[in-house]
Design a protein around this nucleic acid. Sequence first.
RNA 1: GGGCGGUUAGCUCAGCGGUAGAGCACCGGCUUUACACGCCGGCUGUCACAGGUUCGAACCCUGUACCGCCCA
Length: 881
Amino acid sequence: MSELPKAFDHKDVDARWYSFWESIGAFTAHPESGKPVFSMVLPPPNVTGSLHMGHALNHTLPDILARWKRMQGYDVLWLPGTDHAGIATQNVVEKQLAQAKQTRHDLGREAFEARVWDWVKISHETITGQMRKLGESVDWSRERFTLDPGLSRAVRREFVSLYREGLIYRDKYIVNWCPRCRTALSDLEVQHKDTDGKLYYVKYAGVGGGAGVVVATTRPETMLGDTAVAVNPDDERYRHLAGTRVRLPVIGRELPIITDSFVDPAFGTGAVKVTPGHDPNDFAMGKRHSLPSVAVIDEDGRMTKEAGPYAGLDRFKARKALVEQLQQDGLIEKIADHKHAVGHCDRCGTVVEPLVSTQWFVKIGPLAAEAIRAVEDGRVVFLPDNWTKTYFEWMTNIHDWCISRQLWWGHRIPAWYCDACGQTVVSEDDPTTCACGGALRQDTDVLDTWFSSGLWPFSTMGWPDETPDLQRYYPTTLLLTGFDIIFFWVARMIMLGLKFAGDVPFHTVYITGLVRDERGQKMSKSKGNVVDPLSVMDDIGADALRFTLSAMASPGMDIPLSEGRMTGYRQFINKIWNASRFLLMNIGELPERPALPPVKDLHLIHRWLLSGVSRLALEVNDALTTYRFDQASDRLYHFFWHEFADWYIEFVKVDLQQPGPVRDAAVAVLVEVYDRLMRLLHPFIPFITEEIWQKLPRRTGDGNTVSLSAFPTAVTEWSDLDAERDVAYLQQVVSTIRTVRSERSVPPSRKITAIIDETDAHARAVLEQYAPYVRLLSGLETLELRGDVAASPDTVARVLEHAHIFVPLAGIVDRRGEIEKLEKELAGLAREAGGLEQKLANAGFVERAPAAVVEEARARVVQLAERRHKLQAQLADLGAP
RNA sequence: GGGCGGUUAGCUCAGCGGUAGAGCACCGGCUUUACACGCCGGCUGUCACAGGUUCGAACCCUGUACCGCCCA
């Protein structure tokens, strides 16, 4: 047993247990078990590469819950899987091709898709490998991928049903277009960034005696597509111009001046150009006023032939060239600096171009209304609660969802067009011919990736079939995810779950913060501050990483992953390892679990420990019930290290040195408590706890893994406030003597004498009975209990509540130091007493504060006075003036 | 422009009505046979600022400043 290495080597331990758990099916859900259900789906990571720290957090926290619930006897389903992540994955592969100077068009659609599948395989291996390394207790037998045949069938069912209900339509509309990805994007896939730009004031000459007007624009190149100029109807400055016409520079087109209350008179000159083809607001205005729409920028971001002399130029080059021309022509009145939000492609960062094109949309209003109601009436609860507001905000201002993407990677849109009769056929099964007999060709576009992941909580369980899993595990208990995908994913799951699965997809949504770097900055490859979970795990082990994330997961807060905290928790794991070594060295070879003697027969120290462990179990369960991973971790950390290891282990060394019943009782308590501690810690740090638990003598009826053992609960009979008070007293005595030693630089190897004058009978009895423990922990040769100590300059004296502690240290007492110390303490006491007396003299306090608080203050004043007297007496003994 | 969060020890963070805590860092002492990834002891804070509520505020309210995020 004693051959455990001195330092914990996670590499040696971690790898063994995961495959063991998998081999015994420890994480498999059992629908037939009859146990209560706890179910979650894992937010499926994108198959774009590997997992980052954010994943590590959002996988660790639910794993803690899954393991905890499993140990509590629940039938836990934690369903894993991955997301094909349309545009994101396609971009990754396109980048790889680009390195070989190829594009997807060089390969063709089929070969490109094959290429992506190759990549998916690699990425999937990486991700699932990382998940195993992190110890995630997911049910691999139910793993899914969003492009699995079953899930693809679900997507078709979804599309066709919504289409038949009129909730999916195809329309020509202005959409966000990424000229680099060459696809439409949804509103959510556009990142608005504040950008320093210019505001150009351009003169439009009047036509037929009209006065003309100066318009202000941030994007002069789009003026080539103007079809009107608009002013606010209430704007006195322009009232006379309404109905007149101006001439568009360069192109020469005549534009009407219209009035529309959307125009902000305070922006620029108060007159704006209207470009329905390249601005969403102008598009809407164009609809209102039946204006034509002219496209001057194409899908590659180049100027079209409508742009006259600029045709073929890149849009930004065209801007520059056009501005130069306008300046030459004297048509630029001025150019001002102007900060404004510019939309960028979420995936590649290219400036998005609003374009009019034909796309598929989901009519979102009716779906959103239901989803809002579900949160309003509490069927779905957001934690922390403030996210509810964010959700409502977005849901009530929601726009129709553009779901078609001009990509090759994803679910192909199940719509076919007949060239012969112009029919559109939307169908779950591939149709062969049109009703008219004409040939059909399928829409070449694919669906937004979130159109499929929105079904995740039920498509993974077999929907649209009524499977046993679906019946049992849907709705899921909880979803845990980052706030960055509340709109993308959470809201859509709620809408689609209500629509198709007939119920909310989860009862609780726990929203985590983002994992940031030590300075609170978002981790990003370009900043080079990415901390890779794999290398951290290599370095400090999965358990230490998990514990760090858990301890830092305060609700609603981002997590700056601090090196210092990680180090601290790595050391905690090592501490557990070494405490385990101590335990295993000392309990010896036990054929079976020793029976725990009745608590009343155990001495104070044991009773104190059992009381603490019982309370700890209560606290950990409470904390996890409210998702306070940080509190649970803190309690475990503190109890294990600073109560169990620092004090109990030191106390119990006394017992272990005495063969016979004293030692046997100590061993029994040690094993019992350690078993509980391993169980309590297991959800947080599964690897080391399994390793150690396996080495503990088994209790009859124990299974073969701690991961399926019973999670500890509070034990009422163990609660013992008297023991807690008495041990706290012993600790105070020990600490006092230790402090004296430290102040006087008495090395631990030098055994000394302490004399305690204890006036409280109970305390004296405790001290008497447990003197050996105090001696060992304080490094005492002898401990005397008597009240006749004469003041001596060679004796350090310390004051406790109702005791004096004397430590004779002949020749090394520093009188001046002692006097200073006493005076400092007296000053502190005087300050505290002064504050309290002032408080008590305040009639308001005495009358209005709770009686207990007032009582406490009074008692404290008495206590302080007593202590002051003792200290003053000591000062006198030292001969202070 | 609207909304959310933050501002507490040198650093990273807890605490959220009864005069401040953890880890790391720092200082001093220790080869105390589980652990130097350790043990013992110690130092460190006008809890951003200004008002207000309260017997009492880091904690509740109002405002200001700065930092960060989301939405438009």
